[in-house]
C-alpha cells in the first residue's frame, strides 16, 4: 500500500503533463488564425479547447499532489470536486464556443446576429434562434446554479462563530 500513493501521484502528474502538452500544441492554430483574417472566427473552438486542456491539466496536478497526503481517502470527494470544477469550467467554455454563443457574429455557419448576414451568406445554413436561446439559457442557469451553490458555501465559512481569541 505504501507505493499506491506515489504511483497515483506519478500517474496523475503524467496525465497533467499530457494535457499541458496538448494545450501548448494548439499554439500553431492561434498563429495561423492571426495570420489569416478569414480564420479568426474558426479559431475560437480551438481556443476553448486550449482553455479546457489548461484547466484539466491544473486540476490533474492539484489532485495528483493531493494523493501524496495521508488523508487523501477522506478528502476524496473534495479532490474529485477539485478535478471536476476546472474541467467543468473548461467544458462549459468549450460548449459556448461550439455553439458559437459568443463568436457567432460573423461566422456564416452560426446564429445570424446581424440580420444582413443572411443576405450576404444566404446558403450558410443558419441554426435556429430557439435552439440558440435554449442553449444560452441552459448555460446561464447551469453556471448560475454553480455560482449559487459555491456562494452559499462561502457565506457559511464566513459566518462561522469565532472563538474568544478571534480565531475560528
Amino acid at each position: 500500500m505504501n507505493t499506491l500513493r506515489p504511483t497515483l501521484f506519478v500517474l496523475m502528474l503524467a496525465l497533467a503533463l499530457l494535457a499541458a502538452v496538448w494545450a501548448l500544441s494548439m499554439i500553431g492554430s492561434f498563429f495561423t488564425a492571426a495570420a489569416d483574417y478569414g480564420n479568426h472566427h474558426e479559431v475560437t473552438e480551438t481556443l476553448c479547447l486550449f482553455l479546457a486542456a489548461a484547466l484539466v491539466s491544473l486540476g490533474l496536478a492539484l489532485s495528483g499532489t493531493a494523493m501524496l497526503e495521508k488523508s487523501y481517502v477522506r478528502t476524496a470527494w473534495s479532490e474529485l470536486a477539485q478535478l471536476t470544477v476546472p474541467a467543468l469550467m473548461a467544458f462549459g467554455a468549450w460548449l459556448l464556443f461550439v455553439n458559437e454563443t459568443f463568436y457567432s457574429l460573423f461566422d456564416p455557419k452560426g446564429f445570424p446576429v446581424h440580420p444582413t448576414e443572411t443576405f450576404i451568406y444566404p446558403d450558410a445554413g443558419w441554426h435556429g434562434m430557439l435552439s440558440h436561446l435554449l442553449a444560452a439559457m441552459l448555460v446561464f442557469l447551469g453556471f448560475g446554479a454553480l455560482w449559487l451553490a459555491l456562494r452559499k458555501e462561502k457565506e457559511k465559512v464566513e459566518n462561522q462563530p469565532t472563538g474568544g481569541d478571534g480565531t475560528n
Binding site: V85, M89, T101, F102, A136, V139, F140, L146, L150, R151
Partner: peptide
C-alpha cells in the same frame, strides 16, 4: 478551487445571460 470556480462561473453565467438578453 471553490473560490476560483465560483468567480469563473459567475463571469460565464453573466456572458450567457447577456446572450439570452440579446436573442430576446
Amino acid at each position: 478551487v471553490a473560490d476560483f470556480a465560483r468567480r469563473t462561473a459567475v463571469l460565464i453565467a453573466l456572458a450567457a445571460g447577456l446572450e439570452v438578453v440579446k436573442i430576446l
